[in-house]
Write a protein that binds this DNA or RNA. Structure first.
Lengths: 208, 208, 208, 208
DNA sequence: GATGAATGAGGGTTCATTCAT
DNA sequence: TATGAATGAACCCTCATTCAT
């Protein structure tokens, strides 16, 4: 077990080093030797633990992804009512923890690679689909399905837009501002979706 | 002038070649020699017309930027009423012409570089600010200023989100879908902004 | 002894793996790690059983050598008459068993290294000398010594030529064709060596 | 023209450097950087003039091949009679000029690579086929076709065997010895091919 | 006996850039 | 204006070898 552990530890260290470098210097200037140096290892170690530079990048994207979604999933699970679940989605996406300059910039780098790398596409798709499904599921307990699907799609797009804005202009959008924008967007959309009808289950309690 | 013309022609050819390569292989794999080869010129020509690789990239981003905003600016200028101007913003951003896979992907590549390159930041800021100002100006003729500023910000963010979605999942969002989403978003936001009040200047005529 | 047996078994497995790899990928692309992987062992095992890569190669050449000469020596020992012994030399060299594409190609790889490696030279010389001595000894019981020496030398050269041809163009020479060529060569040489004289000992019986 | 010349000059220098290194250290230890250093150029120059390490090796084999066959072809062209042409084949193959330790050793290195490299196969095949055709053509003017084909094949094999012997044991076969062996082989074969018949054109004169 | 983590040099190749022509 | 020869550093990756476990 100690034997297996060392692999995982080293892999983790390398992935962390890669993440740091991508944030600091950009994916373009990240190199295998820089990663090993940053991790305090010899040049060859990256290829001892990863088949490829691509494999390292894949693992790095996966970890970045896990860090970000952990916030979202955790909050959504903790939520009691459907509307709280939707709020948890926003809060998780634009939380102080995950909405870091480093995270956002690194994530943008990966986004830019997705169109040309099937493996990254797959990773991205899995997360995107699951998130949107969860969101739509929560929304369907509040409003009509067709509206729910639209809002789920629009809200994810809007949140992505916030991430993008934050990446391109780090001083442009603080987490608090981001959340405020998303909340208003959600309120307006919900208001338009159920103009004057009585809410069937205003509190959302009782819904699984 | 004929002398200068040749310079401009060559510069244009190199920038076009760079754009093609960025779309096809990514910014990461674009190289000076590939660009010159694609443009049908010798290796040294890039440095004859550009100070260095960075200058070429800057010019390339500028051209990409011009191509995209030309659509938007043109349509917004042609619009007669404020609301048409807002629609023109959406249509121009998500038009069949500018909303190409090539454009979107290349643009995303540049977005990812912005955080680390002051020069690119400046280029991006100029465009972003001008666009948002135009949009806010038009909106202020329809609704109250505080709402107008929010919607201008939110709409640009939303449109960016659509671009991002299109870049990451090319089959995910067609231009038509993108426009439909943006229109609905606009309608909902406007509806929330002026709930029951009579519009002060419904046609927008008279506004510059 | 059981302890030693395991050593020998492992050594044999490594040498076999080396032979396979040399045949498949060439000596140039054979590496210690590939050998250990092919043998199903850990990287370090090669250096546990062999001083270094050179020692492994030496052992590999020795084994290849043994496999090939086993055919020849066995057949020559079984032969009853001198001329049968000469035939056995040809048959053993170009037998269906030893004249394999794998054997021939690997052997050629080693031949190419011989000029620069004293150790390999020694191994090669021992075998070459013994074979040629055996052959000359048998021939001297058929024809005059000076002719016998020539034919022994020429026949070994010719057989080497056949091996070379087979290595370079695997479809070029089948074992059967190779034997036919060698037999004809032998006949012509013998005919030229004893033009019209009565053979001193036509059957070769009585010769040790 | 001067421009084009420099390419050819450099290419030639690199190929020469490669040949030297292959002779001295073996194909296994020849590296691109060693070649450029030996040629007095920077590391990258090899890839400026050759697509690949493979392309360099291909050009190297081609040049080695040309050097060797130049001797043979020149002598065969100068020969007046068919039998002289056959002798020219032997003399050219085992001449003091081409039958150098360096040539022989380098050639053997390439032979060993042929089985795994299609491009080298092609180069080898072209030469081998042409040589043997020329030889058979000359022989057919002396003896019956079926014998001519056999002797052409056997003689090329025998000469290859001599080369191989020379490569593996440089002190083993001098050019003079090699020629003597080949001549005797030829004589014996011819004698066996036309035992007692009158030669149709004993001098070979008049044959083109 | 056996593992595989670790090293650092060297492999082939591409790179941005300079400069003589 | 235009060429492409030349450089040397850096790229990703594989190597033989050592050694703690």
């Amino acid at each position: 077990m100690a034997r297996q552990a060392i692999s995982e530890i080293r892999r983790g260290e390398l992935v962390d080093a890669a993440l740091e470098l991508i944030h600091e210097q950009g994916l373009m200037n990240m190199s295998v030797s820089k990663v090993s140096a940053r991790a305090g290892l010899a040049t060859g170690m990256v290829h001892h633990y990863f088949a490829d530079k691509g494999a390292l990048l894949e693992a790095t994207m996966r970890r970045l992804n896990k860090r970000i979604t952990a916030q979202i999933v955790g909050r959504m699970r903790a939520a009691q009512t459907p509307i709280e679940r939707v709020h948890a989605f926003i809060d998780g996406n634009v939380s102080e923890d995950s909405f870091t300059a480093a995270h956002v910039a690194a994530w943008l780098e990966f986004w830019a690679q997705v169109p040309r790398h099937v493996q990254l596409q797959r990773i991205h798709d899995v997360v995107a689909r699951r998130t949107r499904t969860n969101l739509a599921h929560a929304l369907k307990q509040i409003i009509a399905p067709e509206h729910a699907d639209y809002i789920a799609q629009a809200l994810t797009i809007f949140v992505d837009g916030i991430w993008l804005r934050a990446a391109v202009d780090p001083q442009g959008v603080t987490p608090a501002e981001g959340r405020r924008l998303a909340y208003r967007f959600l309120e307006d959309s919900l208001a338009a979706a159920k103009p004057k009808t009585a809410k069937p289950n205003p509190t959302g309690r009782g819904a699984k």
